[in-house]
Amino acid sequence: MYTRQRQRPRARAGVNRRQGTLACLMLLPAVTGLSVFVLWPLARSIYLSFYQWNFYTDNVFVGWKNFADVLGDPKFAASVIRGLLFTAMVVPLQLLIAFAFASVARSVGPRMAGALKMTIYIPTVVSTVIASLIFVVIYQFSGGVANWLVGLAGAEPQAWLGDAAWALRAMTVPTIWIGLGLTSLIMLAGMLDVPESYYDSARLDGAGWIRQQIYITLPLMKNVFLYLLITGFTVTIQQFEIPLVMTSGGPADSTLLPNLLIFRHFRYDDNVGFSVAAAILLFAVIGSISALVFRLLRSEKATDA
């Protein structure tokens, strides 16, 4: 754009205005969609969070009571921390596996690479509910594949979903499995974009594989990582269908992730105030952590329009 402006400085104002109109037109569908189906419902949720509402009797304004109730509920704070812990277990591992996958796919022959790319995407096709059911059966105590494998390795069988120490960890597997396809493909896309000549010259300088990754691949893929980190974080901390199907939040709340707690309140409470207020507080948590990640990994392109 700016080349053109430099060439014809007098036309600048006109071009800008024309560009502004066009920009508005092209943005209109997205902005309308987000306004009607995201921002407007959000505004109404915020409004509702100050009321006691059971749908059949009049709304009663209760001020900050719903928020106070949520913050005063130790289960909510615990579930948010648990959600962050779950994210910390899932996202780095997912990125690591995706990175390994992309590295392998990049370096094997084209046939094998094609097969890999196709396979990795396939689990994405399965719905979360079905995947959870598959893993419930895999994690069965006797007769489950997981304990069969553990037995082959000579270890004791585990109550993967019945033991509070294991349940959340057991859930990382289906979570990673479902999300791996897209993460890997995007990772591979970024990796294939790094010019081969960079590696060639690094090899001439005697840099090994690990050094090549640290000094060439990682810096050049910063934006890919940022994108995958942010989307991985927001998706994973919101996960609730997997614990809902596999354990309904137990045993002893060990898999009660924040969205599952909110969903439970939404389903069973007589008033929706608590669940709406809790959901807004969760938004605040996710929003501020994401903003922090953006800032830490400060990427010019990502933060500046």
Binding site: D163, A164, G250, P251, A252, D253, R264, Y268, D269, D270
Partner: peptide, 20 residues
């Protein structure tokens, strides 16, 4: 009474199974 009361007591039974 409210379902959350029943869930709370169920939580105590679960906790006992987990060794509390």
């Amino acid at each position: 009474y409210d379902w959350s009361v029943s869930l709370a007591f169920a939580g105590a039974i679960e906790a006992a199974m987990q060794g509390q």
